[in-house]
Nucleic acid binder design. Structure first.
Length: 310
DNA sequence: TACCAGGATGCTA
DNA sequence: TAGCATCATGGT
């Protein structure tokens, strides 16, 4: 992705104990994060790029290696600090979840595994497109589609920026062919057109609240309940949003459902009830726990994606 | 070859 | 409102 011209690293140390770049990368919430070489992570967000390097120069409280974020003070202050959710105390969340998880061994293990996974605050438009693409696709395939989309429509700045809605809308409904998007081509094109017409502002959607913002997102073609919850969680910062996908359904059925129906025969309403039963106690940060549980399930089942470049 | 993937849509009853 | 078939494409 990066052509190699971006190597300067002035360095902002990140020594938070609850920060694990590799786990964040493979956790399925972000698709443009790569481990370039061992301990060296490249992250692209909207039109921005930053490099995150694991280093012995700084250490976490437990003595393990911390990180250096290669950007200026102002870039860190204005963008990446919030992007990595560094204004949130994850230690408190971990302790609360461990205390509230009761006798549920799966949640305890997921919390201990996922404690370094921060729920990133990503760009609204980028999460809308990314999670429209994500439906019925495996994570490596999602990453490839998004990269091809960036290379075709993104502005080149030494790396490819995420395409603007203008660029995708201007390409027309036929312009998205050949990227491996399949039936999602129409969803993305129509979403770009509506996004340009509405020009939704993040702050305004936040004011509307979780429910109304979700309903607005679902007015786009290709955004249903699950994708809307991903956008609410990763793009708008509603940390209580709880996306229910196939993996979460597996978990809910296996760990919380005590009935006789098979996994396929349970209705979405029943899964929502199970989610409230199992995870309602973690409000107002159910989404963070969801992300830990999701990531742990990927690892546990051997389906975690590789994060390195092709 | 058959099946599945961080689902959504449109039709039918 | 619920249940169902269908929707491209890539990977195993």
């Amino acid at each position: 992705m990066n052509d190699g011209s971006i190597n300067a690293c002035t360095g902002i140390p990140i020594t938070d104990s609850f920060f694990d770049a590799r786990k964040i990368m493979i956790s399925g919430q972000v698709f443009r994060m790569y481990e370039n070489s061992p301990g060296c992570f490249d992250i692209y967000s909207k039109e921005r790029f930053v490099r995150l390097i694991e280093t012995e120069e700084y250490s976490k409280a437990d003595g393990s290696a911390a990180y250096v974020l290669c950007c200026s003070d102002s870039e860190y202050r204005d963008y990446w600090y919030h992007y990595f959710d560094l204004d949130r105390n994850y230690g408190e969340t971990v302790n609360k979840v461990l205390a509230d998880s009761g006798q549920n061994d799966f949640i305890r293990k997921a919390c201990l595994y996922g404690a370094g996974i921060r729920v990133l605050n990503q760009d609204l438009w980028e999460t809308m497109v990314s999670f429209i693409i994500s439906q019925q696709k495996q994570i490596p395939s999602i990453r490839k589609c998004i990269e091809r989309l960036c290379e075709r429509f993104g502005e080149y700045k030494g790396w490819y920026a995420f395409p603007t809605a203008e660029a995708i809308a201007a390409a027309g409904p036929e312009g998205l062919k050949g990227l491996g998007l399949g039936y999602r081509e129409r969803y993305i094109y129509e979403t770009a057109v509506k996004f340009l017409a509405d020009r939704p502002e993040k702050e305004e959607l936040l004011k509307r609240g979780y429910k109304a913002a979700g309903e607005y997102l679902m007015s786009y073609t290709g955004i249903g309940r699950k994708v809307a919850n991903c956008i609410l969680l990763f793009g708008l910062g509603f940390k209580d949003a709880f996306p229910i996908d196939t993996h979460i359904m597996d978990i809910l059925h296996r760990e919380f459902y005590k009935g006789e129906l098979s996994r396929e025969r349970l209705t979405l309403k029943e899964y929502e009830r199970l989610a409230e039963t199992g995870f309602g106690c973690f409000s107002p940060c159910r989404g963070i726990v969801q992300q830990w549980v999701f990531a742990y399930e990927l690892i546990r089942s051997g389906r975690a994606p590789e994060g390195d470049k092709d």
